[in-house]
Design a protein around this nucleic acid. Structure first.
Lengths: 204, 204
DNA sequence: CTGTGTGAAGGCTTTCACAGCC
DNA sequence: GGCTGTGAAAGCCTTCACACAG
């Protein structure tokens, strides 16, 4: 099988969001031109991205919305609900726990962990917060492979070591630090300050 | 002046975070090898990135930590505190208001706006929340150029139209939708569900 | 005639190899 | 000797041009 550009995979998710909206509006077929416009890319790029995974369109007509959605979910592996553990229930962690977009996308936060589970928090959270000591047992008992990391930078690496040791293979990291992980563990970094800085450069 | 790769600019911010940590530890000089390792890139890439903006190193020695920090901030335009407006004070918006990383990076959220300013919220927020009707007057009176958008997808485009009309030139968008904006307005999208989906693909 | 699929061309980014300076 | 600066090469991704199917 051919190697698929990283960016293409990222864009598949974008297409999926657009397809969902089409589905809500009961639209059955969409052209690469229309879909690409909604996704903010060029039509040829959309078509090329899709053909990495197969041929889903009908020439002269377009793509079937429902089928394409499913094929993309197959490719991404989000057809089945995937359990996720969240470590670090501060401001950001709490907000993410309350965020409904994850579930929609096929992820369920099955455990939330903090060094201070009893710390006073904003609202009713949809989950009891476990102590950091229980990290290993949570991951193993719930067969979790993915983690969201919203701890301070100073403790991020230590937590990651523990997560990796117990079988986590994918980490969404919000701590502003580059994590050292074993080869087979994937890390995606989200750094909000950097996004703003980046805008600051271009806004001139 | 030569055209600078978008990715290089992004990485400048990453370098800046690493330099800050070095500064805290009173380290005065750093080699491209050490700094690149902390930033998670190759040494040659770091050096190439830096030379887009000038020659800051000393051969045989390395880079002066303090001076390099300042030069990068000059390049990014984060030497002076930059005012930002936040629109949409729900879960995520509240969390971002409480986030200290922005201020550290040189941004000050000078106004927070919501359709329902009196809605019950988690904690004491560091700012009074204004009504959406005041959006235009806030932006103009405080001379804001940058906005953080944490409103639902359904109202995002409408808010963006108003922001652009009143002179905003850079938007950090958390709504899962591609925004239509005038040519000169920059948008950076942050979509957390997509980041997780992306991990899901590679975690196999 | 409309709109997809795709090899080839073009453009952008990263990496290499080594020259240059302390 | 050690480490930066940089043109050239390699690699990756996007765009083009057009063949092909309905």
């Amino acid at each position: 099988m051919k190697v698929i550009p990283r960016r293409s995979i990222y864009r598949l998710s974008v297409y999926l969001r657009c397809l969902e909206r089409l589905r809500e509006n009961k639209i059955l077929t969409v052209s690469s031109e229309a879909l690409s416009k909604a996704a903010g890319v060029k039509p040829t790029q959309l078509r090329k991205d899709l053909t990495y995974f197969g041929q889903f369109g009908t020439r002269g007509l377009g793509y079937p919305v429902n089928e394409l959605s499913e094929k993309i979910m197959d490719a991404l592996g989000t057809n089945h609900l995937q359990p996720v553990i969240l470590v670090g229930v501060g401001n950001l962690g709490s907000a993410l726990l309350a965020y409904k977009g994850f579930e929609k996308a096929g992820f369920e936060i099955v455990a939330a962990i903090d060094t201070d589970p009893k710390r006073k928090r904003s609202k009713e959270l949809p989950l009891t917060i476990g102590d950091i000591a229980e990290l290993e047992s949570f991951v193993q008992s719930k067969k979790v492979k993915m983690a969201i990391l919203t701890v301070p930078a100073t403790s991020a690496q230590e937590v990651v070591n523990r997560l990796c040791a117990v079988g986590i293979t994918a980490i969404l990291n919000f701590a502003p630090i580059i994590l050292q992980t074993p080869e087979h563990v994937i890390v995606n970094n989200v750094n909000l300050a950097i996004e703003l800085e980046n805008l600051s450069y271009f806004a001139r």
